[in-house]
Design a protein around this nucleic acid. Structure first.
Lengths: 191, 191
DNA sequence: TTCTAATATAATTGC
DNA sequence: GCAATTATATTAGT
């Protein structure tokens, strides 16, 4: 059984406490990281140490514990960082995909609009107007969205810019937006 | 120079090195964190210390340096995390805005298409087809993009902080403990 | 085996 | 009592 402390269990300039002592101290520490004076005295007596030594031991032990905790937190942070980085990457890709889609939509819709208007088609004017507005909306937003370093200053025509909370991590309620998606004004997109 | 060490510049059971000594050692450390034995001896001689003391000092100094480095790295990591979190938040919001736009576009385009087709308008069929395909594309992608995964929780990496027992993290050989040291009696220490 | 860097720990010091 | 240091002891590595 661990033939280490064999020889010097007696005196000498012994510094390290014996395994027995350590084990006992650890056991108490598990329950009481900061024992009462009375307890320390009893421990000292039982282990053949000075009460002060016991006190110091607990002090050092607490410091060690804290140090390890810090280490753990560091690792946690690192892990969280990696996770977040991965997610962020996904978001970027997705954003790119969405932008591509929008671009395609705009071009096609524009072409479509051109065909409609040049035909002097009088049926369903309102509907055409909607499409027209939609396109200009897309164009407007695009200028912002395509720019580098967009600071989440995304101009959302459906909502007040000020209502965009910055860093609270809150998700915008899409359903609420939907309620006022299309204002009554015929040219709402121009505002 | 610099009479800082005010009181005890003599001997006594003095342990701390004088400011002069420290300053000199620091000066050397800046250039050589791991000086040669010869250098240590010369330093010891010059500063009135034992060579061993000088050696120990450099040893501890290196340890301290490393410790500070760790601290710095931690802060850096934290900073990077915050930055990334912010960017990720922006991306999320932007994604939301893009999705909203796409949704609107789809609905409007769909309505438009409905009007066109119900009017039995045969002009420019190809263009309509393009629009139609575009819409279905949007729908397809949407199934992925709208999934709940995008309301992810990049919010709080430290959420479990408070739940930590203050002094945890000791590493104990449980088996040995239970062996003989730990009495079951509630007042074991009185025996 | 010897030497040394790194680490662990008992003890000090100052607040 | 705690944080920061110091000096020593022990372990690991070449």
């Amino acid at each position: 059984m661990l033939a280490i402390g064999t020889t010097k269990n007696k005196n000498e300039g012994r510094r390290r406490f014996s395994d027995e002592q350590i084990r006992f101290l650890e056991y108490v520490f598990e329950t009481q990281s900061r024992p009462e004076l009375r307890m320390k005295q009893q421990l000292a007596n039982k282990l053949g140490l000075h009460p002060h030594q016991v006190a110091i031991w607990f002090q050092n032990r607490r410091a060690r514990s804290k140090s390890r905790q810090t280490e753990i937190e560091y690792n946690n942070l690192q892990q969280n960082y990696d996770t977040l980085a991965s997610k962020s990457e996904s978001l970027k890709e997705e954003n790119q995909a969405l932008l591509t889609q929008l671009q395609t939509l705009r071009e096609l819709a524009k072409k479509q609009q051109g065909n409609i208007t040049t035909r002097h088609d009088f049926t369903n004017k309102s509907s055409n107007k909607e499409l027209s507005g939609m396109i200009s909306l897309s164009m407007t937003n695009n200028s912002t969205l395509l720019s580098e370093n967009y600071n989440h200053q995304i101009t959302d025509p459906f909502k007040d810019n000020t209502s965009y909370a910055q860093d609270d991590g809150r998700i915008i309620d899409t359903e609420d937006q939907r309620g006022s998606l299309v204002p009554n004004h015929p040219n709402w997109w121009e505002f």
